[in-house]
Simulated assay, not measured.
Amino acid sequence: MLLNCDFTPDVTYKAIVKGYEPIPLEICQQFVQSGGEVYLEHRLKSFAAAELPDGSSGVKRSLISQNQPGETIEIFARALILAMPRRSLELLDPTGEVLDPRNRKVQTLIRTVTPVPMFKMFVSYHTPWWEKVEVTKGRSVTDLPVRQCYYWGTEGEQLKADRQNQNSVLLASYDDTLNVTFWEGLRDKKEEPPFETKAGYYGSDYSGSPDWHHYKAPAAMVREIQRQLKEMHGLSEIPEPYSAVYMDWGDDPYGGAVNFWNIHAKSWEVIPQIVHPQENVPVYICGEAYSDGQGWVEGALSTAEILLQDHFGLQPPDWVTEEG
Rank of each mutant, 00 (worst) to 15 (best):
S243A: 13
H233F: 11
D252K: 10
G250H: 05
G255A: 09
G234N: 02
Y254E: 10
I238W: 09
D248N: 15
I225Q: 10
E231L: 13
D252R: 09
M221T: 11
A220G: 13
Q226I: 12
E224L: 00
P218Q: 02
G256K: 09
A217W: 05
A219H: 08
A244H: 08
G256M: 04
H233V: 09
E231S: 11
D251F: 08
A244W: 02
P253W: 10
R223W: 10
I225W: 00
M247D: 01
V222G: 09
L235Y: 03
H233A: 12
Y242M: 06
R227H: 11
M232I: 00
I225R: 08
S243R: 11
G234W: 03
A219R: 05
E224P: 03
W249Y: 15
M221D: 06
R223M: 04
W249G: 01
L235H: 03
R227N: 10
Y254G: 01
E231Q: 15
E224M: 13
D251V: 07
Y242L: 09
G250T: 07
Y246N: 07
A244Y: 01
E231W: 01
P239A: 06
A219I: 08
M232H: 15
I238Y: 06
Y246C: 12
G234C: 04
G256F: 06
I225H: 07
D248V: 03
L235F: 03
H233L: 15
Q226W: 03
L229H: 11
G234L: 05
D248T: 03
H233Q: 13
E237C: 01
Q226G: 15
M221L: 14
P218G: 10
M247I: 14
G255M: 06
D252T: 12
V222A: 06
A217M: 05
A219Q: 02
P241D: 03
M247C: 15
P239R: 07
Y254I: 00
Y254S: 12
D252H: 10
V245Q: 06
L229R: 04
P253I: 11
W249E: 12
E240A: 13
D251K: 14
D252N: 12
V222Q: 02
G250P: 09
S236Y: 01
A217E: 07
S243Y: 13
A244E: 02
